[in-house]
């Protein structure tokens, strides 16, 4: 038997859940639709038996408890007590404060330099060694390469500029005369600047301090 579009109204009609208009529409329909009337008659039998004999039929039937679908918001909020949620909130605020206030300060900013009196923030050059206190005068200074066709200028300072040199390598060996000027127990700093083949400044490293430990 083909399914009639009115079939979905059968239950609601029998259970008196239709409004007046829908009820009349369905009643008019089943006077013209033997299929719906037959299905409604069968459904009425089923409902009647369930209603009248339910006590006997469902004796011992395990009925699901109030396992209503809980909206996800309620599930989330039920996961912790209000006090715990307050603690979570405070912790989150603290973490946020650290992230927003402290971490940016720890982050080394890109080096700044001036081009025609304008402040320029450039990409950085990573200095490899020396970057920590060392026991002996470093024989060589090394930094990360920025690629081919780049030349570098290295500056070594104590209280003032001690030495500077240019190279196309990403390292440079300290000449003997410079080593002689350096001594244990002193603190130094160094910096590298990178230039394009045209001579434009393209990158500057941070100024890194190191100390030669006293013997």
């Amino acid at each position: 038997m083909e399914k009639c579009e009115y079939e979905y109204l059968i239950d609601d009609y029998l259970l008196n859940k239709l409004d007046k208009k829908e009820k009349e529409r369905f009643e008019h329909h089943y006077f013209n639709c033997p299929s719906c009337f037959e299905k409604m008659r069968e459904r009425n039998e089923l409902i009647s038996v369930v209603k009248k004999r339910g006590d006997a039929i469902f004796q011992g039937t395990e009925v699901p408890e109030e396992t209503q679908r809980v909206p996800w918001r309620k599930k989330v909020f039920a996961f912790l007590t209000p006090k715990q949620w307050a603690a979570v909130g405070a912790s989150a605020a603290l973490i946020l404060a650290v992230v927003l206030l402290v971490i940016p300060q720890l982050k080394t900013s890109s080096p700044e330099f001036f081009v025609n009196k304008d402040l320029v923030r450039s990409k950085s050059i990573n200095l490899i060694s020396p970057v920590i206190d060392i026991k002996t005068i470093p024989p060589q200074f090394r930094w990360k390469s920025l690629g081919e066709d780049v030349h570098y200028k290295i500056y070594i300072y104590n209280s003032e500029l001690l030495w500077s040199a240019e190279t196309q390598e990403n390292s440079i060996t300290l000449p003997g005369e410079v080593k002689e000027k350096m001594s244990a127990g002193e603190e130094y700093s160094w910096q590298v600047k990178a230039f394009s083949p045209e001579g434009s400044l393209i990158a500057v490293s941070s100024k890194v301090r190191f100390k030669i430990s006293p013997n």
Binding site: E45, S48, V49, V50, K52, R53, G54, I57, E62, V63
Partner: peptide, 27 residues
């Protein structure tokens, strides 16, 4: 016939019986 139907409903799998219980018996 009512008794036959009663027995037939009793023999249904729980998932069908529970729906009849909640929908028609409990309303």
């Amino acid at each position: 016939k009512a008794e036959l139907m009663e027995n037939a409903i009793k023999e249904l799998k729980p998932k069908y019986k529970k729906v009849l219980y909640l929908y028609y018996y409990k309303g």
